[in-house]
Design a protein around this nucleic acid. Structure first.
Length: 423
RNA sequence: GGAGAGGUGGCUGAGUGGUCGAAAGCGACGGUUUGCUAAAUCGUUGUAGGAUGUAAAGUCUUACCGAGGGUUCGAAUCCCUCCCUCUCCGCCA
């Protein structure tokens, strides 16, 4: 959520920054300001009446103690009470409306975020490694998976539906090996604390990290218990500190978590036609940081480097791109995407998206710290995949396939997988 | 799922209708004193809004005692609903 005071003080700046995302937010900003003005007027009047009532009620208390008759004055206050109730309702309605609108307004892109209209304008930041060369035509991971019996889409479809998969045998073990390898890497080399969190979350948590109210369609919901399946560990992990005032010495807080992620992918064309690349359920290691405003940009660089380390250790070619203002996510102020090369796809796959949200999420979830002067200040929140598993799995199979049809396991993973080769 | 107990400020913990935003203690911060890994003493110490005003401050005011609703001139206190925690029982990986 954005700061309403910024709207009041610099409405043109807010409109201008929002416009870089594409679309016209000017009317919406004006509407919010208009409601804000009415809301404050109603509140001010209401508070004046409340003040009157408090004063007179005290007088009644005194009078009664002295045994005086107070029925006349009580009747008068009763009238004030009615007006307070009415004005209170008006102010409440305006407040609800204002909050609703504010929750639907995306974050302002950071000044450092490149201006652009769409994904085509995302600048490439750096490239690591090179596209591997093969003396044969590299196979798609679905072919490799079928040949070695690693995973089974038909079984997934039978027990749940399309775009769900069952891993089997070494295929299942490879997934587990990756999870352990990644968690160990981030906790022992990068200073993150591992957390195991619930996969089901309440609506408040989703509002906090800005999946709700705007992206309800993308979420699996359990109506009976008013819970949602987490679409990313960002939700339960960042919300660990919702409604808290953390100590300055605690920052930066750094968490790493493994969770499955559940996404309805409503409106996605071609879902299920590309193997493991886009699934309704996939595993992910998520990195979350909570920092001071001063440190957040530097921490974003570190976070991205931590995610890149995964691909470096596994010897996978990748590139880092920076998302332009027209392509960054709803709550993000600045985002790097890491894309790994998948030879069987002859293309790059997004395996990590590392973002700084500034204080946007922190405002939504009321997450603050006490600064040097003892003032409560909103934290900055960041997160990034470190990394998504299914696509990493795809890149791994496709990159390390051999002419004889076997698949090599990179050195870093061998201790976790227990074998040097599949097949 | 059943029975009981309970949720008050950073913590402990008083407070059952009116000068209660809330005693006391602890902690923290500041001062004084003494002096040595400390004690004594005095003071300060919640959050979020609104109005006014500003260089900053200040002043006035509202709300908040788990959440929401109700009764009342007036609610931490009475009533209702819900949430959470603890203990015991049941069930269970």
């Amino acid at each position: 959520m954005l700061d309403i005071r910024l709207f009041r003080e610099k409405p043109d700046y807010v409109k201008e920054r929002l416009a870089t995302r594409g679309g016209d937010f000017a009317a919406l900003v004006d509407e919010v300001l208009s409601i804000d003005k009415d809301r404050r007027a109603a509140e001010t009047e209401n508070q004046k009446l409340q003040s009157d009532r408090n004063r007179i009620s005290k007088e009644i208390g005194f009078a009664k103690k002295q045994g005086n008759d107070t029925s006349a004055i009580e009747a008068e206050v009763r009238g004030i009470g009615d007006r307070i109730a009415q004005l209170g309702k008006e102010a409440e309605a305006l407040d609800v409306k204002q909050r609703e609108l504010m929750l639907g307004i995306p974050n302002l892109p950071h000044e450092a975020c490149p201006i652009g209209h769409s994904a085509e304008e995302n600048p490439e930041v750096r490239v690591w490694g090179e596209k591997p060369e093969y003396a044969f035509t590299p196979k798609d991971h679905t072919v490799l998976g079928a040949e070695h019996g690693l995973f089974d889409f038909e079984a997934g479809a039978k027990i749940t539906g399309s775009a769900f998969v069952v891993y089997r045998g070494l295929g299942a073990k490879l997934e587990r090996a990756l999870i352990n390898f990644l968690l160990d890497l981030h906790t022992t080399e990068h200073g993150y604390t591992e957390v195991g969190v619930p996969f089901l979350v309440k609506a408040d948590s989703l509002v906090g990290t800005s999946q709700l109210p705007k992206f309800e369609d993308q979420l699996y919901r359990c109506d009976r218990d008013e819970l949602y399946l987490a679409p990313t560990a960002e939700v339960p992990v960042t919300n660990l500190h919702r409604e808290e005032i953390v100590k300055l010495e605690q920052l930066p807080i750094q968490y790493a978590a493994y969770t499955p992620c559940f996404r309805r992918e409503a409106g996605s064309a071609g879902l299920g036609t590309r193997g493991l690349i886009r699934m309704h359920q996939f595993d992910k290691i998520e990195l979350v940081k909570i920092t001071t405003p001063e440190a957040s940009m530097e921490e974003l660089e570190k976070l991205t480097a931590n995610a890149e380390k995964v691909l470096q250790k596994l010897g996978l070619h990748y590139r880092v791109i920076e998302l332009c203002t027209g392509d960054i996510g709803f709550g993000s102020a600045k985002t790097y995407d890491i894309e790994v090369w998948a030879p069987g796809q002859n293309g790059y796959l997004e395996v990590s998206s590392c973002s700084s949200f500034g204080d946007y999420q922190a405002r939504r979830m009321n997450l603050r710290f006490k600064d040097e002067k003892g003032k409560n200040t909103f934290c900055h929140t960041l997160n990034g995949s470190g990394t998504a598993l299914a696509r990493l799995y795809v890149a791994l199979l496709e990159t390390y396939q051999q002419a004889d049809g076997t698949i090599k396991i990179p050195d870093a993973l061998k201790p976790y997988f227990g074998k040097e080769v599949i097949g």
